[in-house]
Design a binder for these strands. Structure first.
Lengths: 117, 117
DNA sequence: AAACTCGGTTACCATATGGAAACTTTATAA
DNA sequence: TTATAAAGTTTCCATATGGTAACCGAGTTT
């Protein structure tokens, strides 16, 4: 006899939307790391490049533009010479911090489970 | 005068490790959705395929194998006829749920900020 | 005048990602 | 006898992703 498809117990049926929507923000390479470093306060392009060891200028520029378009970060040109550019989290961006922290927490637990204490 | 690179205020310097490690688990397409649906209890291949509207069999099989290799989910063949296969979260997999929930929470907030109430 | 800094841009390229559709095996149902 | 279900696998293909390296303009220091 063929099996019946059981009702899913995790909640309402098309519930994947908020998850997918948020993962569309956090999904790209380096994205969570950028947000995490910005959670410490405003940061310039070259500072972020220094923070994110191994990131290319192209990748960093791409991600910063994406996050700016999604209103997660704010870009501000400072009247220094030469002009410098500072990035910081918007209010919406700040809302992401608890999720990032939760991911960091699990990251620690995964390391313990994998014996990398 | 050239600007000085300021010390980052978000914490210790090479702190990206747990974040990157966890994102390496959660990063692929559909991954968080699969974990979320499994958080409701064990689920068969075809049930998950039904849950995750639009996923291809290939993608689902790939992700399930990945998550099994990372000890996030457990695969069990049931002695039904035809044999069916049930997937469920391991203890380690269960540890991911708070992070997934945090992401879902932010997903809701993002929708509100974007005016999609 | 030459070199350097800042904040990128551009071109080129290799690989990774993921979709569509057809096929498989075992076994039961019509 | 034919069809269908479960749980994938396989092939083919298009696009997305991301790295390297060179380059740029404005301004500044040497």
């Amino acid at each position: 006899m063929a099996l019946k498809v059981r009702k899913n117990q995790s909640g309402d049926v098309p519930y994947n939307c908020p998850l997918s929507e948020c993962m569309a923000i956090l999904g790209g390479a380096w994205t969570t790391n950028i947000i995490w470093f910005l959670s410490g306060g405003p940061r310039r392009f070259s500072e972020l490049k220094h923070d994110l060891k191994g990131i290319s200028a192209k990748m960093l520029a791409t991600r910063l533009k994406e996050l700016e378009a999604k209103r997660i970060i704010h870009r501000e040109v400072l009247p220094t010479s030469p002009p410098s550019v500072e990035y910081n989290l918007t209010e919406l961006g700040t809302e992401l911090i608890p999720a990032i922290n939760a991911i960091v927490e699990v990251g620690h637990k995964v390391k313990i489970w994998n014996g990398k204490t």
